[in-house]
């Protein structure tokens, strides 16, 4: 399994009552699988994604990404682990506003420092139809273009896993389809996609759907689509 969440629980302890955001959830995503996580707002979808991405340590349970527990690593090692194994795509794109398209795509290479990163970045930019935009700033791009830049950035270090949080939330139908198609392709190429969404079209792309309700898995549907390897 590329993504394995086993009886994961996460509770937020603020000034008020503790809130159990994720309660004993177990999800597994194999290589080549595209899994959608759905549920009402506040059901714990994003928390689950952050826990899976090594950004938010669970209170209990076990997390494994590409057979490695990210929380067993030091903070710096975990950061590098994320850069090498996980690609993130967010609804708000989270592009660096003062960097060009090319530099945004290259941002993960700040960590890995690979020499051929620029070539790969240009190839990705070309693949997502942004060649004529590569020197533009995010503010000069359409929302669809921004999300494609975010996708290219997520793919730069050739990750094993993509975690996407509402990636089509701000996009029109055509752009949504492009993004989902790209995720599908990534899964088809042997990666694992865990997609948090409200979008029914996005769910349609997923091979399997996990429904969360009140922090717990309410239902799992669909066929597992496991990569041949």
């Amino acid at each position: 399994m590329l993504i394995s969440l086993d009886h994961v629980t996460k509770t937020y302890r603020g000034n008020d009552q503790p809130v159990v955001a994720v309660n004993d959830v177990s999800v597994e995503v194999a290589a080549g699988e595209f899994v959608a996580v759905v549920g009402p707002s506040g059901c714990g979808k994003t928390t689950l994604l952050l826990v899976a991405g090594g950004l938010l340590g669970p209170d209990s349970g076990e997390v494994q990404i590409d057979l490695q527990d990210p929380y067993a690593l030091s903070a710096d090692q975990r950061a590098r682990f994320r850069a090498e194994r996980i690609g993130f795509v967010f609804q708000q794109f989270h592009l660096v506003p003062y960097l060009s398209v090319l530099d945004n795509v290259l941002a993960p290479a700040l960590v890995t420092g690979e020499r051929d990163a620029a070539d790969r970045a240009l190839a990705l930019i070309d693949r997502f139809g942004l060649s004529d935009r590569r020197n533009h700033r995010p503010g000069q791009l359409s929302t669809g273009e921004r999300q494609r830049v975010a996708l290219a950035r997520a793919l730069l270090n050739d990750p094993r896993v993509i975690l996407a949080d509402e990636p089509t939330g701000n996009l029109d139908g055509e752009n949504s389809e492009d993004v989902l198609q790209a995720l599908q392709t990534f899964a088809n190429d042997g990666g694992a996609v865990l997609l948090v969404t409200h979008d029914p079209d996005a769910v349609a792309f997923a091979g399997r759907t996990v429904t969360l309700d009140n922090g717990q898995v309410a239902m799992q549907t669909g066929q597992e689509k496991v990569a041949s390897d």
Binding site: L55, A79, H94, T112
Partner: peptide, 15 residues
């Protein structure tokens, strides 16, 4: 926000 995403994609605190 910028620092948040840079940290998420792997930048260490030292960087």
């Amino acid at each position: 926000s910028e620092i948040g995403i840079l940290r998420a994609i792997g930048l260490g605190s030292r960087q």
